[in-house]
Design a protein around this nucleic acid. Structure first.
Lengths: 241, 241
DNA sequence: GCTAGTGCACTGGTCTGACCAGTAGGCTAC
DNA sequence: GTAGCCTACTGGTCAGACCAGTGCACTAGC
């Protein structure tokens, strides 16, 4: 049985080949964000396929967030700058299909935010600290849950950016929005906001002082406090050293 | 200017409506993995659209990993169990477009693996420990890079599973394969393998002893050692407390 | 001369109807 | 009873058509 090692043949659909080619052009930088693809009618000539096939390929590319098309646009589809939308979508699906529990999501947030604070404490710039100060000020001034939440998101985003790691930033953002979405219907007591602000201030002080481990621990603690009412008892304890 | 607050109208394409409906059916559990969608010709009747529109919707659903279709199948498209394939794809794209540096990816791995070890140290089962032992044995017995790498992956996967957090497990897996892919062309000295095995054994001992923080630190250290040759000096130091 | 308005030539979105190569399951011939 | 064929499906692809939009060049009015 040691004859020539044949590979299983993979029947490749025409539209997949188109997707591959365009994808590769984008990834190699040959096609840059903002540039335009030829029109569908041009593409069908270039790839010598029918328009349906071109369109199916474009649908896949669009689902992956690589291009966007607009009806009536005299140019072809636009190559998009990267957005975490596709990442967000697939993670949301993962969470919705109930493969993921809320506890797992919050745990993941604790891990990511902890890392973000740890890094931010060591790498922050004065401008980023100012952003965090500003966000906390807006949290304190907020007159409703919506404005409070917006400022809160801004704060966390500033920390994530200060971490210098875009992947941490993106994933934090995605997971945060999923978690907030899942508990959106639950009521948040205004009293919780005061405690939340205090937590943020403590963590920010640690960041400012350059004490990464402390900042990380405070961040995890704050998340645990905030979300434990929605979770089984002790679900997050493992991450609070 | 305080008239009725009009919402900007969003023109919804027909195929998007189909995607939404099917997606919702899958997420709500109305359609379970393994079940079949009606055939395209049936769907065009049910949605009262043309087959092209149905097909474009199916392409999007397929790109999201929700369904799969096979030519000639007398049943319709199959609803897929969740796979992180879509997640993997979008993260790979993110890395390929050069939005992400190798350093950021490895940093992210250090964060995730650290968390996995921390949790695994506290939650592991005897069976999972046995899997880790077995993987290390196979690493030691490996006669080539390929078998070594496979055993290595098994080890890390066992740890990730022992963490009890599927999101950590999936993301670790995705990021690991991306990183390995990025440095695949670089040569790994066999001498590195011995050191790697020693690192794994140390970390496993810490896991077995239930010392999560130690296991996490060792795991991060091991990753840092392994990848630092491919990275700018000090790129990972921030995560080694 | 310059601007405001109007066509027009294009775009993407959708539809219709057709053909092909596969597959599975029932039917027939052995 | 079984091996093999037949048929009625499937998804993949093609061709050609229509529509509602969009941007731009051109023109009519100032």
């Amino acid at each position: 049985m040691d004859g020539p090692r044949f590979q299983p043949v993979r029947t490749v659909r025409a539209y997949e080949r188109i997707v591959e080619q365009v994808e590769q052009a984008v990834e190699s930088g040959e096609l840059r964000p903002g540039e335009r693809l030829p029109s569908e009618r041009d593409l069908m000539v270039q790839f010598s396929v029918s328009r349906s096939t071109v369109r199916e390929a474009l649908r896949v590319l669009q689902a992956r967030g690589l291009v966007r098309s607009r009806p009536g646009d005299p140019n072809g589809a636009e190559v998009m700058p990267f957005t975490p939308a596709a990442l967000h979508k697939s993670m949301t699906t993962l969470a919705r299909v109930d493969e993921l529990s809320l506890a797992e999501l919050v745990q993941f947030r604790m891990v990511l935010e902890g890392a973000a604070y740890l890094l931010a404490a060591r790498l922050h710039t004065p401008a980023q600290l100012a952003e965090m100060d500003d966000a906390i000020a807006r949290m304190r001034a907020a007159d409703g849950y919506e404005s409070f939440s917006a400022a809160d998101v801004d704060f966390h985003d500033a920390v994530a950016r200060a971490s210098g790691n875009k992947l941490i930033q993106i994933c934090s953002d995605v997971v945060r929005s999923i978690v907030l979405d899942l508990i959106a219907d639950k009521i948040r007591a205004p009293e919780q906001r005061r405690r939340s602000i205090a937590h943020h201030e403590e963590a920010l002080a640690a960041v400012r002082a350059g004490d990464g481990p402390l900042a990380a621990r405070l961040a995890r603690q704050a998340l645990s406090d905030f979300y434990s009412p929605y979770l089984p008892d002790g679900a997050l304890d493992e991450l609070l050293e």
